[in-house]
Structures are given as C-alpha cells and as structure tokens.
Amino acid sequence: MIVASTASNAVFSLAVQLLGLVTLAPSAFGVFSLQYLVFALGVSVGLSTVSEPWLRTDLMKGHRSSWPDYSSALLYLSAATAVVTLVLSMIVPGLEVVAVTGAIAAGAGVYRSGARYHQVRTERWRLVLAADAIGVFVTVVVWAALFFATDLDRLLTLSLSWMIGGLAAAAVAQRPTLQRPRALVVWYRRHREHIVPLLKDSSLMDVGSIATPFAVAPLLGLADFGVYRAVSNVAAPVRLVLNPLRPVLAGAPLPTFRSVRRIVLVVALSIGFGAAAAVALLIIGSLDIELGSLTALTEYAIPTGLFVSANFLTLFYYMIARAHLSGNALLAGRIVQTVFAIVLPISGALAAQLSGAIWFYAVGTALSGVFWVIVVIRGRTSPAADLTSEDDLLP
C-alpha cells in the first residue's frame, strides 16, 4: 500500500509541474512558478502548524486531535493560501488571467495535502489512492481536452487543469468540518509546544526556498527565471517520492538513520537520481527535442544533476530531523541551509546571471545536504524521538 500510495501521489503532484515544464515557454513558466511558490508556502505552513504538530503530539502523549479539529484548522489555512495567491496574481503582470483559477487550485491543493497526511497516518489507504487517482485522471484529461481542442492560452489551460484536478482530489478526501474561528486559538494552545519550533524552522526554510526566488526573478528577468525555476522542477520526482513518506519516516527509530550503512545507501540513491536527471537532459539536448522550458535547461545538465542529487540528500535527512530532533538542532540546521539558499543563488545571479545562479544554487544545496546529515548524526533528540520504536513504523 505504501508503494502504491507513494507512486500515485508522485504522479498526481508531478502532473501539473511536468505539463508546465514541457509546454510553457520560459517566460510563461517563470510567471506560473511565482504562483506555484505561494501554493508551496501554504503546504509548508500546513505541515508546521497542522499536520506535524498533530503527529508529534500523538507520538509524545498518545493524544490525537479529532478530525473536525484537524480539518477545520486545515480549511482556514487553505482559504488563506487562496487569498494570498489571488492578491499576488492581481499584482504580477501576466498572472491576471489565471488569478482566480490559480487561487482556487492553490487552496484546494493545500487542503488535499493536509488531508492526505492525516489519511496516511490513520491508514485510510483506499481514500488516499482514490483521491490521487482521480486527481491525476481529471488533471490530465482536462488539460488534454483544452490543449488539443481549444485555442486557449497555454498558461490558462494549465491553470484550469490544475484547479479542476485539485478540486476533484479534494472532493474525494474525507469531508471537512468548519468550526468557528475560535477553534484556531484552541488548536494553537493545544499544539503550541510543537508549532513554535516547527514554524520557526519552516519559516527559515521558506525564506530560502520561496522568498529567494522572488528576489532572484528581477535579477534574471522572467525568461531566465523560468529556466532557473526549471532546475527545481526537474528535482520534483525526488520530492514526490519522499514527501508522501513523511509519516512513515517519522515513525521509524532514529538510530536507523544514523548508521553508516543507511547513510551510504541514501547517498547512493542521491547520486542515482542526479545522474539520471543529467543523462535525461543531455539526451533531450542531443536529439534537439522542443519541450518548452525543459529544452532551455539542457545547457545546464551537469549542475542540474548535482542539484537533484543534493536535493534528495537534503530533503531525506531534513525530514528525519523534523520528526526526531530538538528545536535547537533544527534551528541550527535550518540557519545554515537558509544562508546557503539565500547568499549563493543571489551571488551567482549577480556575478554570472543565469549560469551563476544555477551553479551556485546546486552547490549551496549540496552543502546543505552534508550539513543535515551531520545534524541528524550529532543532534539531540526531542522527547517524541525517545518514544519511537519499531511499532511506530506504519505498515
């Protein structure tokens, strides 16, 4: 079930990013990426304020908040994400045409992400698989119908398919319960001891991964920014394999991830993903295939492969740290990663424009990955980690 669930979620999440990568010109993809970054911010905040505090409270105290409480907090966050996306889209030139569709898609996606986390932890696999399958099917069918049978703008075509597919997947999830806004205060008080350190950590992460692209965009221009963001999207399969496994990895005992054997295995997997990405880009470039922003990226196959490898290593050990380590250990790791994520890409863009931004982005991510391995090996555990055992590993 875990393998099927991970695969279905990977395909669902990859669909929109891949369609945008291969059908949008770099300038259009750059504009779309700004909107997608707000959605990513919503997912990040949801993990730190709803999903992971709920999980850590369960691990530490054996107390699991009810679905009405969980889903209500998630709904308010989803609505906030939609509003922020709408406002940004009305301000940024080129996004006005997809302001409403993108806002709805972002809100639905944040809700679906949080609901899926809950369903994986409570082992409601049928709902998980059904929602992912329906989301993929609707997204691809709507996109194909609009792309081949209409003359709609490609950006609008992508946004409509993202919105409708996201709504379809969210509709299959368990029905939410909307409580009064006061329920948010209750939720915060109940989970404060976990929300505060997790939110501090994710805020630093978001500065590096979300705020920095907004700073790099005016330095590069929209067309080059689209290519720069394509680097991150090539690593999407890595994130899409690991992200659905967050609840599973969180339940595994920490010593497992500190062993030399496990570290070597993770590094080998990282190199494999990176090599595959670089080779794929080199093949696309040699065959002179026109695939939108992806074709423009073939010139940077080597640094892109390095980034993909580093992204796997970083994300894997960061997830372990989030689930098991103390707030101080998380903060130390995140500060170092944030410095790399901000200083290096901006410095690269200032020094050598697009080429410099991509190379420095890849090197900074690699340095972050090495540091997270060190943090997991040497960092102090939280009380939640002391309670984990083999029995906590989800089937």
Rank of each mutant, 00 (worst) to 15 (best):
G62Q: 14
V16L: 07
S209D: 06
A362E: 04
V87S: 13
V370C: 10
P197G: 00
H63E: 15
A236N: 02
G251D: 12
N243L: 07
V186T: 15
M319H: 10
A106M: 09
L160I: 14
R261Y: 09
T365E: 11
S286R: 12
A235Q: 00
D132A: 11
S66P: 03
E193F: 02
A230Q: 01
L354C: 04
S113L: 13
L34R: 05
S66V: 00
L41R: 02
S382F: 07
I91Y: 14
S368F: 10
L75G: 01
S159F: 10
S259I: 03
T256V: 14
I289W: 13
L331F: 11
A230D: 09
T101L: 00
V241W: 08
G221H: 06
L37S: 05
Q353D: 15
F12N: 07
H118K: 14
A223F: 07
T295I: 04
T49S: 12
R239V: 05
L249A: 13
S209P: 00
Y300D: 07
V141E: 01
L240Y: 12
A79V: 15
Y361A: 01
V43S: 04
V227Q: 08
A82F: 00
S159G: 11
A130V: 07
V241D: 09
V142P: 10
A236S: 00
L24G: 00
N9R: 13
P253L: 10
W143C: 00
V376T: 14
F29A: 12
V97G: 03
A211Q: 09
Y70W: 06
R180V: 12
S382Y: 03
A351F: 11
I358T: 05
P197S: 01
A15T: 06
L344H: 13
G62M: 15
S232A: 08
P197I: 02
E390P: 06
L21Y: 05
A103C: 10
R378F: 06
P197H: 01
F307L: 05
S66T: 14
A278T: 03
T177I: 02
P213W: 09
E390N: 14
V308Y: 10
V343G: 03
F273D: 05
H194W: 12
G364S: 07
V3P: 05
V87E: 15
G364L: 07
N328T: 08
S347E: 07
I377S: 14
S326N: 02
R182T: 14
V50A: 14
P345S: 13
I346V: 10
L34D: 02
A170C: 00
D392P: 01
G305N: 00
A171G: 13
F39D: 01
P26D: 10
S13I: 13
P255E: 10
T81W: 00
